[in-house]
């Protein structure tokens, strides 16, 4: 009996260790962000001084990141949802090839994509200098997540028959898309949206190459603070990032669990 339990106990202990490895530094950074002096530990007292300082130094990067994330979401919704539907109804080899191409950004390092974009559009000054340049990169990078997420949902409903039945009731192509396709794809759209916003907020590989001094985003600012600021400020900045991120992650978990329980019914 004990022999049979031992491996489980070891497994449990290992799991706790791994969890600690993942979570302890995150907690440390959050605490460090509100600690008066990190090297003296929590006993030095708690303060919001660092957070305020981060806000004065970096508020523009935070706002820009939020705006870019929302704009990325807007683009992936307006472009990705119809495209997911188009790919689903087209099917066959053409759809597979298109899907393959648009998911390629997942397989190719962001650095390479960013270099390509700079080489191609570096000469177009106004575009290169604006946040739109970063937006374009984020849209390319997040699009496959939205499309796959929506297609996964469209794939399990009997789209063709629903479409035909709406057509038999007199609905035009457009009406069918709005009344039948989109509402039934909502779980996928929701999951895709959360992923897109989360990824855009944290995107660094592409953004570091694409940004200019006037278009810094939150992760770019983070890298900057890690390299040049005292640990407390870097931590406070990271804390703000976590505060933005955690609700998104919680919503994602909630949506996933919702879907799992509904799927089981």
């Amino acid at each position: 009996m004990i022999a049979a339990r031992l491996p489980v106990a070891l497994q449990a202990a290992f799991t706790v260790l791994v969890t600690a490895f993942l979570i302890v530094p995150a907690v440390m950074s959050m605490l460090a962000g509100v600690t008066v002096q990190y090297s003296r530990g929590l006993s030095s007292g708690l303060t919001l001084e660092w957070v305020v300082e981060v806000w004065t130094l970096y508020s523009d990067t935070i706002l820009r990141s939020v705006l870019i994330a929302l704009a990325t979401l807007g683009c992936t919704l307006t472009i990705g949802v119809p495209a997911a539907y188009g790919l689903q109804v087209t099917g066959g080899r053409i759809a597979r090839v298109i899907e393959e191409i648009i998911t390629l950004p997942l397989a190719i390092p962001g650095l390479a994509i960013a270099l390509g974009m700079i080489i191609t559009y570096g000469g177009v000054g106004s575009f290169r200098q604006s946040s739109l340049f970063i937006l374009a990169g984020h849209v390319v990078f997040t699009m496959p997540f939205m499309i796959r997420s929506v297609m996964a949902v469209l794939g399990v409903i009997d789209l063709d028959t629903l479409d035909e039945s709406a057509a038999s009731l007199g609905a035009s192509r457009w009406q069918r898309f709005i009344d039948v396709v989109v509402p039934n794809a909502i779980p996928g759209i929701l999951a895709g949206s959360l992923t897109v916003v989360t990824l855009s907020l944290g995107e660094f590989n592409l953004t570091w190459m694409l940004h200019t001094p006037l278009t810094k985003t939150l992760p770019v600012g983070l890298a900057d603070s890690y390299a040049s600021m005292r640990l407390e400020i870097a931590s406070a900045y990271t804390l703000i990032f976590f505060v933005l991120l955690v609700p998104l992650l919680a919503a994602m978990q909630f949506a996933a669990r919702n879907r799992a329980t509904r799927g089981r019914q």
Partner: peptide
Amino acid sequence: CLAPLLIVAAAFF
């Protein structure tokens, strides 16, 4: 439905 995606993918990827 597919055109915007193809345009974006072509131009920026």
